[in-house]
């Protein structure tokens, strides 16, 4: 015990150097995390002191709140709609750019541009593109080739529209990650495969994919987590003149949008904290499952 204390005393000046990040981390992360865990067991509206209610918030959310389940369903649809599509297309792009093509850097930049643009700005622009009737660019294109116009931001189409935009917006980032992964695969494996008479498809299936596994794992987990927390797009695309978020009849209400509404519009901080912990719990499970599926120990 004494030796430990001695050791801790030895490098006093080091504490000063780690102090800023330690304090910031504690004040803005550790304390809020535990505070909201406590609040999730209370009824709390910011103004009056929190009232302890045990697990009542969790019970209400899970058993008496149809809007939570609606938001949950929308979020699952959003994750299922964006993650696989985005991964497939960005992998394809990465492979295409990895070939010896002209204007390689130009293409890289081109596809990456949406990633450096604020998602808020993208959403505002796409909201114009999605304008209903004959007014938006998309509907203009559709009607000019004789197809009926689509009510992009109506009850049926809002969520698919947001998915489409999000896939487009997220392509570049995943593509760059895959590109880095592809460039890390040694050429000897491809040469060996060619000697064995493997076709392009065989090489992709048996060399590229398995060796991309670490990248795949990272991309999948990060995409699922960020897709689960989708908010900005939903907010910009669906808020109305009364400040409500989620669209007509909650057609695009996602779980974080619902969290925002409960916490920062209705100020039910206890309920919102419980929602936040449920989201954390779900993401935790999803990530574990993800790692189990993707990360099989393979030695090469």
């Amino acid at each position: 015990m004494n030796s430990v204390l001695k050791e801790l005393n030895k490098q006093k000046s080091a504490y000063i150097f780690i102090a800023p990040s330690f304090i910031i981390f504690t004040v803005f992360l550790i304390i809020p995390v535990f505070a909201s865990l406590y609040w999730s067991l209370t009824e709390y509206n910011i103004l009056q002191p929190p009232k302890f209610v045990g697990f009542q918030n969790y019970i209400n959310i899970l058993f008496h709140d149809p809007r939570f389940w609606k938001a949950m369903a929308n979020t699952v649809i959003f994750v299922a709609g964006t993650v696989p599509t985005s991964i497939a297309i960005s992998l394809l792009l990465a492979i295409a750019i990895d070939q010896n093509i002209r204007f390689k850097n130009w293409f890289k930049t081109f596809f990456f541009i949406p990633s450096i643009t604020s998602i808020i700005a993208i959403s505002v622009i796409w909201k114009w593109l999605y304008a209903s009737g004959k007014y938006g660019l998309f509907n203009h294109l559709l009607t000019s080739i004789g197809l009926p116009s689509v009510n992009w931001l109506g009850v049926t189409w809002t969520l698919p529209s947001i998915i489409l935009m999000s896939v487009w917006g997220g392509l570049g980032y995943n593509m760059i990650l895959f590109l880095a992964g592809l460039q890390g695969i040694p050429h000897v494996f491809y040469e060996a495969a060619e000697v064995d008479g493997a076709s392009e498809w065989d090489k992709f299936r048996n060399v590229t994919l398995p060796l991309l596994r670490p990248t795949m794992l990272f991309v999948t987990i990060m995409s699922v987590i960020s897709a689960f927390q989708v908010f900005e797009q939903v907010y910009i695309m669906t808020y109305n003149s009364e400040g409500a978020v989620g669209g007509t009849l909650d057609c695009a209400l996602t779980i974080v949008a619902y969290l925002y509404e409960t916490g920062f519009q209705r100020f039910s901080m206890g309920y919102a904290s419980a929602l936040a912990y449920l989201i954390f719990f779900i993401l935790f499970i999803v990530t574990i499952v993800n790692m189990k599926i993707v990360e099989k120990k393979v030695e090469y």
Binding site: A131, S132, G133, Y135, N151, L153, G154
Partner: peptide
């Protein structure tokens, strides 16, 4: 009467 938002100024302009 349209159930979703329309760009009011433009649609007013073209008379729809």
């Amino acid at each position: 009467v349209p159930v979703e938002n329309r760009p009011v100024e433009q649609s007013f302009k073209i008379g729809e």
